Amino acid sequence: MTVRVMLISPATSAALREARFDDDVPLDEAGARRARAAADAGAAPGADRVLTGPSLRCRETAAELGVAAEPLPELGDWDMGRWRGRRLDEVGVSEPEAVSAWLSDPAAVPHGGESLRALCARVGGWLESLPGEAGRVLAVVEPGVVRAAVVHALALPAEVFWRLDVAPLTLTELSGRVGRWNLRCGRPLGPGSG
């Protein structure tokens, strides 16, 4: 049986605008406004089960989209350990070798959090655990989770993660079943996005 997994990236927050490793900040006003406009346009697809990553940004996006979503820890953002809340440029200046290792080695954890491989394995484990009768699953999740899901679903090398861009308030769809997934990328949510 085919499962359809629809992943919506959350609206913008200050952390996203500042290229900061997220520290669970709320949506900014522009992001909330865009999510409400998407909801007014009926952009959130219907689903049999609606989930969200546990971050405040994901939960607030789901609420602004008008969907009642269940937070799921497995859909949490990439754990950046001690880098959480810091800007990438700041970390790059203070720890250039660590940032270089993080960007080039999928197993590296210079921040003490989760490696890229571990993120892809965690998100992939969730994806593969969906039963065939799951039907349509909608989840509002951080861009890193969307990227990890695509890497896993298409059996791509972990390094491809860095080459995938996920814009705020876009829909990425995976359909298929365990071990065989198809991808539909980045449809924007909002008025006129059809």
Rank of each mutant, 00 (worst) to 15 (best):
A14M: 08
G92N: 12
R147E: 04
T172L: 06
V3K: 03
E90I: 13
T12G: 05
W126Y: 15
S129I: 03
R122C: 05
A63Q: 08
A98W: 13
S9W: 05
A121R: 15
L103W: 12
V145M: 14
A41S: 12
R87G: 06
P54R: 10
L183W: 05
S100W: 12
A153Y: 14
P106A: 14
G85V: 06
E90M: 08
D79K: 10
V137T: 06
S193F: 08
T61H: 06
A15K: 00
D40T: 03
L154H: 10
V150Y: 01
A69L: 05
E74P: 02
D79Q: 12
W181Y: 04
R117D: 15
A108Q: 03
S193Y: 04
A134Y: 05
A107D: 15
A38I: 03
D24K: 06
H111N: 12
R20D: 05
L189H: 03
R84S: 15
L7P: 00
G85D: 10
G85I: 11
T2F: 01
P71M: 06
P191S: 06
L16A: 03
S55G: 14
D89Q: 12
M80G: 00
G53Y: 12
L116Q: 06
S129T: 09
D165M: 06
P168L: 05
E128P: 03
P54K: 11
V5L: 02
F21C: 05
D28Q: 01
R59T: 03
A19N: 11
V140P: 07
P191F: 02
D79C: 02
A63T: 11
L164D: 09
S104A: 14
G186E: 13
A167L: 07
V141A: 08
S100Q: 15
T61A: 00
P45G: 01
R117A: 14
L75T: 13
V151M: 09
W162K: 07
C185Y: 14
L174S: 09
L16Y: 00
G31I: 11
R82M: 14
G92M: 15
E159F: 03
C58H: 09
L174Y: 11
L65M: 07
A148E: 01
A47N: 02
E64I: 04
A47F: 03
A68S: 10
L169A: 08
P188D: 01
E159D: 01
R34K: 12
P110Q: 10
L174D: 06
A37G: 11
V145F: 13
A69W: 00
L171G: 09
L164Y: 12
F161S: 00
D22A: 15
T2C: 01
A14D: 11
R177S: 00
A118T: 12
L183C: 11
W83E: 13
V123W: 07
G125K: 02
V91G: 07
C120W: 02
R136I: 00
P168H: 02
R177H: 11
V109F: 00
L103D: 12
R20H: 08
E60A: 06
A107W: 05
D79I: 05
V150H: 01
S100G: 15
V145D: 14
M6C: 07
E29Q: 12
D48H: 09
E97M: 04
R34M: 07
L138K: 03
R117V: 15
P168F: 00
T12H: 08
E173P: 09
A68R: 14
R33E: 13
L164E: 10
R87L: 11
V140D: 00
V99P: 11
V99K: 12
A63N: 02
E18T: 04
A98P: 07
